[in-house]
Write a protein that binds this DNA or RNA. Structure first.
Lengths: 330, 330
DNA sequence: CTGTTAGCGCGTTCAG
DNA sequence: CTGAACGCGCTAACAG
């Protein structure tokens, strides 16, 4: 590990003071002759400023933390992609942490973020998280909640979950389907709860009964689905609240050897590129991920810049109902 | 922004010296009475060590850098997921950077990693990267190349690209197809090059001519595909070297209104959960992502632990040919 | 405009 | 086993 040069090495080599080097490197005007000598010394010594020292000195880590349940699905990986791009444009580095919906891990991750002096945090918190949980660890750092909501005192960026679910449900109703069921696991998750509400409200407004196929986890959901889909009064249509729910439903269709004609109609949440090429092209509610991330990062950067500004603003973005065939449309 | 407590605050509050606090917190034995007083002070002052100061002092940033072209596809997002899990188990934080196959960005990202004193780096380098490009910025830090190869002096973890492509090609041949084409964009990419080689070698060994549908970028690939698939001598089978290539092919099938029976057979690279539910269930070469990441992280951590150990070892993992229907099988 | 100096918060000496 | 003092590399404050 070759020893790294420091400002002082550069300063000596250039025959100037350390702070002159520092200033020049940060774009503050210095005498042109000195500037040149500094540049030369930097090149010769292969100098690169030490970010850890800079962080300590300046109290700014130039790091923003991203705390997601996981990153291995379409929604989070696309969101992360865009976060990284915007962050790096602004000179920030992304520290990535995932909590897997485990409270212990989430707490740990928050502590890590605190120890690292993350200047801001974008979080999709696990169900049941409270503002106190967060503020106990991160008392006053800028935070934006993405796709989760647990306090009006925090900026949140969300899908218009209720409305989107209601729209999708209404679409089924307009097809003339009466027996529309709502399927999801992990019903504690904020966005799922909202979507369930939107679905129920829409049915209720038409005097129809809601039918929940809701399980705590996915193995349990598989069981419930098996029962429901084998029954005589199989639902005519399914509103699947997540891409994972869609996947489990599809697996069951296959297991039960249901031909496309025999299957209930379906609308899912979260679009993906191959959705149009499924055996029955999948109709979905698409989330405006880039716009959501832009809003979240704007809020976060503004909070960072303006100091202790608790934005106290929640943005809900409309979902787009992408009609393909699984909803019953031709 | 509430002021943070420091070791000294804790020391004063506990009536001990600063170094005693530091020692206790790092698990070194201290007098039990003092230990208790320290714990109490830590709780009262809500003290949490400052990682930036620690990094500066100790020269260890406890950060590992991940530099990928992007994270918004199945392969990279799953790899990243596992990297994050292993890193955080070992007390490391992941700094995420993406280079979008732009040399300028890649260089920038490497500089960032250097400034941050990343203790190790996992990189999927862009085509054309040389060892010198990397070592010019990161002279001697532990590095593992994942899914890219540019020097035997660096530990690399790869798919057995050539063999996997050859196997898939052979599978087509066993079906009796003669006109097997290979389709990809970005032919400079290391793994695509290898797959092309494996494909060609297999055909050559049977005395067959290879047929490359290879473009610099995806728009150009679309053009080529349109021509090739509309021609009289349309290929019987397509080996698609990436999930993106598969997607573009599927789009074209749709645009050309090719019924499943009319389409060329196809095998893709990279499995995804819904591959089994496409209108023609997709046969693919699946990469053993968890095993690849485990190997990469093992190597990286070993290098970090053992100091300046240039592992100089390249691991190739076998791909698994997942047979569904698109290859011509029932 | 420039150079010198003093910390940022921690861990690691060195005496005691 | 403990505490005081130093220094990691940088930048803000001060004095020239």
């Amino acid at each position: 590990m070759a020893k790294r040069s420091t400002v002082i090495d550069v300063a000596e080599s250039a025959g100037v003071g350390a702070s002159t080097v520092s200033r020049h490197l940060r774009g503050i005007t210095v005498r042109p002759k000195l500037a040149e000598r500094i540049e030369k010394a930097v090149r010769e010594l292969d100098y690169e400023p030490d970010e850890t020292a800079r962080s300590l000195r300046g109290g700014r880590s130039r790091t923003i933390g991203v705390l997601f349940p996981k990153v291995s699905n379409a929604y989070f990986s696309h969101a992360l992609q865009r976060i990284e791009e915007l962050a790096s444009e602004q000179g920030y580095t992304v520290a990535l942490l995932t909590h897997h919906n485990d409270p212990k891990e989430q707490l740990n991750d928050l502590l890590t973020l605190r120890r690292c002096r993350a200047e801001g945090v974008i979080i999709t918190a696990m169900p049941g998280t409270t503002l106190q949980d967060i503020r106990a660890v991160l008392p006053s750092e800028p935070i934006v909640s993405l796709d989760s909501f647990f306090s009006p005192e925090l900026d949140s960026v969300l899908l218009q979950n209720r409305q989107s679910a209601a729209n999708a449900t209404r679409h089924f109703l307009e097809h003339g389907y009466k027996a529309v069921a709502c399927v999801t696991a992990r019903p504690g998750t904020y966005s799922y709860r909202e979507r369930m509400d939107g679905y129920s409200a829409e049915l209720r407004s038409r005097g129809l009964q809601s039918r929940m196929i809701v399980a705590q986890d996915y193995p349990e959901l598989d069981e419930m689905l098996r029962v429901e889909l084998s029954s005589e009064q199989r639902p005519e249509a399914l509103l699947a609240l997540s891409d994972t729910a869609v996947l489990h439903i599809m697996k069951l269709f296959q297991e039960l050897r249901l031909s496309p004609a025999q299957r209930p109609k379906m609308i899912g949440f979260d679009d993906f590129e191959l959705a149009a090429f499924l055996d029955v092209p999948l109709s979905v509610v698409r989330q405006p991920i880039p716009e959501m991330v832009d809003a979240a990062m704007n809020s976060l950067l503004r909070q960072i810049k303006e100091g202790t500004t608790p934005g106290t603003q929640t943005l809900s973005m409309p979902g787009q109902l992408i009609i393909r065939n699984s909803c019953g449309c031709k």
